[in-house]
Design a protein around this nucleic acid. Structure first.
Lengths: 220, 220
DNA sequence: CGGCCGTTTGAGTCACCTCAACCACGGTGG
DNA sequence: CCACCGTGGTTGAGGTGACTCAAACGGCCG
C-alpha cells in the first residue's frame, strides 16, 4: 500500500482512466511512457510465443502497480480481464518521484521483490503440479486476493463466494492447461462438494480446507 | 554490475567463502542474516512441494546477487549446482548501504525488475513449450549466460563449447520434465546434428540458429 | 574386480490434449 | 414474441507426448 502522503502527491500528477474488459492496455512495443495503479478490476499480464501460444504470467489486482520504470519497453502485454479503472501518471514523473522519495523507492523495491517470489511460486505450480492441483491452487489464489475487499479477517471457516475474474480460456492460459481440462477439473471439484458453481463466473468455495489440501501446498 | 566504489565499500565488510557442489546454502528457515554475490560457480534456487516434488526457479551465475533483503525468511532454498565461491556480507549492512547509497539501491531495483522479467519468461516456457523446445531453450539460456566470459561478442556463428552446470535431474527439475525425457531430447538434438555431446556435462552447440528455431522463440 | 552413481535406452501406461458435438445464454432482428 | 446466431462452456471419444517402471550401460573409486 502507498502511504497517504505519497498518494496525494501522486494524485496531483495523475488522471483516472477506464477500460472495458478485453482491452489491450500496453503492448510489447516500445514507447510506453506511463505507469498506473489499479483502482478496480483485474489485469492479466501475458507472454506469448510467435506461433500464438500464450501464457498469463501474472494478475494485477486493485492497489497493484502496472508499468515498467527505467525501461521504455515491457517484455509482456497487459490486457484487462474485467472492466478496469486505472490511476495513471507519467513514467518520467514516477521515476523522478522514486529518486526524490527514498521511502517510496523502498516500498516499490519490496513490492518488486514480492513479485519475484510470486512468479517463482507460480513456476512451482507450472512445473510440478497436476491439473487438479493447479485448478485448486488458482481458486485459492483468487479467493485470497479477492477476499480482503469483502471482509478483513474472513478465516478458513467462512464461506467464500467469489466472482472469477477469468474465463475458462484465461484460467487455462494461466495454469498451462487446455480449457477443456480446466472445465473437467471444476466439474470434479463440484462433484466432490468442494465448490459450487452458479453462473459461468460465480462460484462458492464450500470446503476451503479441502481445497488447500487438493492444491498440493499442504502436507497429506 | 556493481560500480568500483560500491565494490570497494562492500568488500571492506565482506568475506569470501567457498562451497562444494551439492551444498545447501540457505534454507527456507528463518534467520538468514547475510547476502552475497556470486564470484564463481552456479547456484540453483529451488522451491518444493511438501511431498517432495521439486522445481528449480532460478539459476544464479557469477556477478548475480544471492539473498533477500528486508526479510529474514526466503521462500526458497539455494543450493550449489557446481563448486561455488561467494562474496558474503551481512544482510543488515547491505540494507543499510541500500539506504545510504541511492544509486546502489537503484541498481539493485533494476536488477530485481530484470529478475521478475526472467521468471515470467520462464513461466512461458513451463506453461506452453514442448519437451524439445524446453531443452533447446535451456541450452540456449546456459550458453548465453556462460558465453560472455569466454568472448565478449561471440555471435551466432561461433561454435559454443559449454560445460553444463546442471545434471540431467536438475535440468529436468528446471524444465518441468523427467530426467529420462531430457536425456531423450538431448539424443534427438545430437542425432539432428544440432549439438554434440562429449562427456556427461560437456556439449558443443554446432547449429546455434537451429537451436534457436527449435526453442520456439523464433518464428517458423 | 565389484559396487555405486549418473545416464541411457526400452516398453508400456496414463494424464492431458485434440477434435468435435452439444448446450445454455444473451443479443438481434424480423 | 420467437427464430436466429454468436459466444463461452460443457461433455464425449480417441490420440499422444511425456511419464513410469525397469533394465542396461559406462565411468569412477575403493
Amino acid at each position: 500500500m502507498l502511504s497517504p502522503e505519497h498518494l496525494t502527491k501522486l494524485n496531483r500528477h495523475s488522471h483516472h482512466k477506464r477500460y472495458p474488459v478485453g482491452q489491450v492496455i500496453t503492448g510489447m512495443s516500445a514507447g510506453e511512457d506511463w505507469c498506473a495503479t489499479i483502482v478496480s478490476g483485474v489485469i492479466k499480464l501475458t507472454n506469448s510465443l510467435p506461433d500464438g501460444r500464450q501464457q498469463i504470467v501474472g494478475l494485477l489486482f486493485p492497489a497493484d502497480f502496472l508499468g515498467r520504470p527505467f525501461k521504455t519497453t515491457s517484455p509482456y502485454a497487459a490486457e484487462t480481464a474485467t472492466d478496469v479503472e486505472l490511476c495513471c501518471f507519467s513514467r518520467r514523473y514516477f521515476e523522478q518521484l522514486l529518486v526524490e522519495q527514498p521511502d517510496l523507492k523502498q516500498l516499490y523495491l519490496e513490492r518488486t521483490l514480492d513479485q519475484v517470489d510470486a512468479a517463482r511460486e507460480w513456476m512451482l505450480l507450472l512445473g510440478c503440479k497436476t491439473a487438479s492441483e493447479k485448478v485448486a491452487a488458482l481458486l485459492l489464489m483468487i479467493a485470497r486476493r479477492l477476499g480482503p475487499t469483502t471482509c478483513a479477517a474472513c478465516s478458513a471457516h467462512a464461506v467464500h463466494n467469489i466472482e472469477l475474474p477469468l474465463s475458462r480460456t484465461e484460467m487455462a492460459e494461466y495454469l498451462g492447461l487446455r480449457l477443456e481440462t480446466v472445465s473437467r477439473q471444476l466439474n470434479r471439484l463440484e462433484a466432490a462438494g468442494t465448490i459450487k458453481r452458479f453462473d459461468r463466473r460465480g462460484i462458492v468455495i464450500r470446503d476451503m480446507r479441502g481445497l488447500e489440501k487438493l492444491s498440493g501446498e499442504l502436507p497429506l
